[in-house]
Design a protein around this nucleic acid. Structure first.
Lengths: 111, 111
DNA sequence: ATTATATGAAACCAGATGGTTCTATGTCAA
DNA sequence: TTGACATAGAACCATCTGGTTTCATATAAT
């Protein structure tokens, strides 16, 4: 596992456990053991998830003594944001249309 | 396949082929055959991807004659946007910090 | 020095995923 | 009504994924 560039941001955040890990790391840096304590699965499983996240460069880990401390690296999420921004026009349009319909109906009701 | 709620937005967009399909449907409604013509894989494979997307409610399909026409339903992407918005503060902070460091260094250089 | 702690890494496993081919069904056109 | 077209669905397959257990190694503490 953890071959360079094997996982991209989209794959990395597809798993709910990994999203939880990101959320934990958003609060503060944590060791693998500390992260594991929040889940109902083995340390090894969490370590694998961390490898995937590190592969997508969403986290980075540095050894401190015998611990490995992971921290959030949110930059790759900008790729996701860019991807999303393309679609915002569509749901904005839909909401605008909906708003128009609703308001029009409202006007009609008052007649 | 296509059991209700089996796939969420995060999983649906994890696959690059599915993201391409979404992009195609953003331009206009299309039949399965039409979508397939843009890829180097079987119609059945594309149909499966469409089922996943439909399960996540990112697309919807209606039968018209012997064709099934799929169209984009961007609303579920708002969930993704909300998820993302939580992390925006972090990368904004990082950029702010970086800006601060760079500018500070610049000032020091002038001394 | 010995022991406990924290992680790394390998081997293994079941189920999910992404693709295929083949067959069946419904619709349009001649 | 016959044939071509568009899709549906089943069966199958290889690989990936997300988990496990086990063993090894490095550091900390007594």
């Amino acid at each position: 596992m953890s071959a360079a560039e094997k996982y991209d941001v989209f794959q990395a955040i597809a798993d709910p456990t990994r999203r939880e890990v990101l959320h934990l790391l958003a609060a503060k840096e944590r060791s693998i053991a500390e992260i594991t304590s929040h889940f109902n699965m083995s340390r090894t499983a969490i370590a694998k998830h961390l490898h995937v996240l590190a592969d997508a460069e969403l986290v980075s880990g540095t050894k401190v003594g015998r611990e490995k401390i992971y921290s959030l690296q949110p930059e790759p999420l900008t790729e996701l944001k860019q991807w999303l921004s393309f679609y915002e026009q569509f749901w904005n349009n839909k909401l605008t249309k909906l708003k128009y319909v609703v308001e029009n109906q409202f006007e009609k009701d008052k007649e």
